[in-house]
């Protein structure tokens, strides 16, 4: 059993469906992310990205389909699954009136860490991001890019095997966005954390990334950038994306 779990993908989704009343938001979604893999979930606004994230984090629940994090079924073993995932939500979720340290220690406590361990991990993550000097600053005093970095530091504090980022660059300027994308790629490579990065911005896709195109709740394409562009007979991922999301659902 332990070996089975160790070999399991960081995230596995099988036949997932979800509807808001009569409106379908996700339809038979299949997804598998290997340990240490960086995957971009690309979709226009309203494609179902945030719904998918809400289901993977179990803020929503679906009766259709299976979600497993490192082999731990989210329904039956929610605690084990949650312990293995770090999440950066689309909306900022730091407490603006608390300091960076207080926010990070709070998160550590929510993962059952002692204050000492949480502080040590907080310093480790902040140093990695060259933000140690911000430890005692109130979050309100930080720039948008810095806040996002703190959120990522927080998401990594408990050493998750899967990091979920839902449009983490919303509200950031271009240079902060680029820096953040690079930073998470580096983290993925250095720490072997699987990353699912949801975005609707084409320029956040790297040439070597695996891309999943989601539209109207369905996966329209899944593969390396080159494979997707070749399959669509176009030069760029942007053109492939336009073509995929313009297609009428069958």
């Amino acid at each position: 059993m332990a070996d089975e779990i160790a070999r399991s993908p960081a995230l596995e989704i099988h036949d997932l469906g979800f509807a808001y009343g009569a409106t379908s938001a996700l339809d038979h979604v299949e997804l598998r992310i290997a340990a240490g893999e960086f995957v971009v979930l690309l979709g226009p606004n309203g494609a179902g990205k945030t719904t998918l994230f809400s289901l993977v984090t179990r803020l929503y629940d679906s009766r259709q389909g299976v979600i497993a994090v490192e082999g731990h079924d989210l329904h039956r073993h929610a605690i084990e699954a949650h312990a293995r995932m770090g999440v950066v939500f689309q909306q900022p979720t730091l407490d603006l009136d608390l300091t960076v340290k207080q926010n990070l220690l709070y998160h550590g406590a929510l993962h059952g860490m002692t204050r000492g361990l949480a502080y040590q991990r907080a310093m480790e993550q902040l140093s990695r991001m060259q933000m140690q000097e911000s430890l005692h600053r109130r979050v309100r005093q930080l720039s948008g890019g810095q806040r996002r970095r703190v959120e990522i530091a927080r998401g990594l504090l408990h050493y998750p095997r899967l990091l979920l980022l839902d449009e983490p660059t919303v509200g950031l300027d271009i240079s902060s966005r680029r820096a953040l994308v690079e930073h998470v790629h580096e983290l993925c490579a250095e720490q072997g954390v699987a990353v699912l990065w949801a975005t609707h911005l084409i320029d956040e896709v790297h040439a070597q990334d695996r891309v999943i195109v989601l539209d109207r709740g369905r996966i329209m394409a899944d593969g390396r950038v080159d494979d997707i562009t070749a399959a669509q007979g176009v030069e760029t991922i942007g053109a492939a994306f336009d073509r995929l999301v313009d297609e009428e659902p069958s």
């Binding site: 803020l59 084990e80 949650h82 999440v87 939500f89 909306q91 900022p92 979720t93 059952g112």
Partner: peptide, 14 residues
């Protein structure tokens, strides 16, 4: 609404 409740709800406790 602001999202910080989500941080609580996704922590690994019942």
């Amino acid at each position: 609404e602001m999202g910080s409740m989500r941080v609580l709800l996704v922590s690994p406790f019942p």
